[in-house]
Design a protein around this nucleic acid. Sequence first.
DNA 1: TAATTTATGTCAGTCGATGACAGATGACAA
DNA 2: TTGTCATCTGTCATCGACTGACATAAATTA
Lengths: 220, 220
Amino acid sequence: MGLRERKKHRTRLALCDAAFELFLEQGFESTTVDQIAAAVDVSPRTFFRYFGSKEDLALDYTVEYDELITTALAARPEDEPPFQALTNAYRTFIHALEVGAAEDPARFVRQRRVIEGNPHLMAASFARMAETEKKLTAEIARRQGTDPEIDQRPRLLVAFITAAIRVGSECPIEATTSLAELLGKMESVLSLVEQALDPGWCQFSLGSSGQVATKASSPG
Amino acid sequence: MGLRERKKHRTRLALCDAAFELFLEQGFESTTVDQIAAAVDVSPRTFFRYFGSKEDLALDYTVEYDELITTALAARPEDEPPFQALTNAYRTFIHALEVGAAEDPARFVRQRRVIEGNPHLMAASFARMAETEKKLTAEIARRQGTDPEIDQRPRLLVAFITAAIRVGSECPIEATTSLAELLGKMESVLSLVEQALDPGWCQFSLGSSGQVATKASSPG
DNA sequence: TAATTTATGTCAGTCGATGACAGATGACAA
DNA sequence: TTGTCATCTGTCATCGACTGACATAAATTA
């Protein structure tokens, strides 16, 4: 890796660090891009060459987590039933979080706290989740051999799982939550989902019941 | 109602109409507040006296729907099991949509299309849903006599229902979907949820199994 | 009609974000 | 080492969303 690339990498990290420090100190909204840029001693214009927006910076790490889940699902055996494949992918995700946080255990919690402290960031993170949902749905539908545009079950099943992820990674702003606590909560919510869903339904496949109830009107 | 109030009401409607017309014509992002204000012949500053933001206008109607669901839940009999209460509240919502759309059947679909055509609006609408979730969760927890901070089941159950609402009201941008089609989809997704969830789990109440698995660490 | 309240317009300014151009700096070949 | 080239960066100008302050115009009430 050349000097140029190393420098870029360093600036990017510096911007992230400075930004999150300021966010935690004075909030997301009241931290200006100018402040962040000044803290790293680059021009505000340069900031936008590294991150498309202030929001992009705050949600930067979520991208890698989304990728983590989608690839984890892709790695599950083809014949694994949809629900098991999804929950296992989620477990892989939790585990990756545990491992990846070795250097800085508070990082994930810190980031979640910044996000949950700001409605705009919450909103944006939901929207990203929606993108991930699309990918997961496509993969489940492919495995089951159904068309996700017609059969709503893959879509709904994925929505259940991501609902669990959301609930599991909620992180009250007041109380000082540790990563261990948060991971524990994620595990427990995951097991709640496993209790909640009808195991028969979750093993739906092409031709099983429930297939029809999707399009209301006749096709033209 | 005095002249002043009537005038205000009229301006508000005019702003909404003009805005949505422009949104559908040229997109949400590329429609400026100045354009909307000009179309109604008010100053841009006045626009912001009616709506906190351009986004607020686009999501204006969602507020009333959120209220609809929460009050529908509150109206369910106290002894109705949580899941039934939620699904019935959702049915009430669908029905209200059907009735309320009598004058302008395309309105709901039009609004959904504007929202789903723009990531920012999608994001914001998720965030509002999250607020509604909080209220619903509080109500379910109250009925079941559990603490939503400790027992994650009300939270998760509500998240399932709102997941269903999200999936049900998704409205592909390309295809021209009618309100009837959309309502039909909502109904069918609702019945899918009823099939998917374990009826036993959904009747959880204080002291039933599943209660413990929520907090990971010891209580201090 | 006079006094009071309230909605609106104007103006100035902040902040996020983008395009255009010029200068600085690292990469690479001769 | 030197010169060329690609790329990074700063500066400047600009747009659009949004806000506070103040003055004016209109509606409400006495």
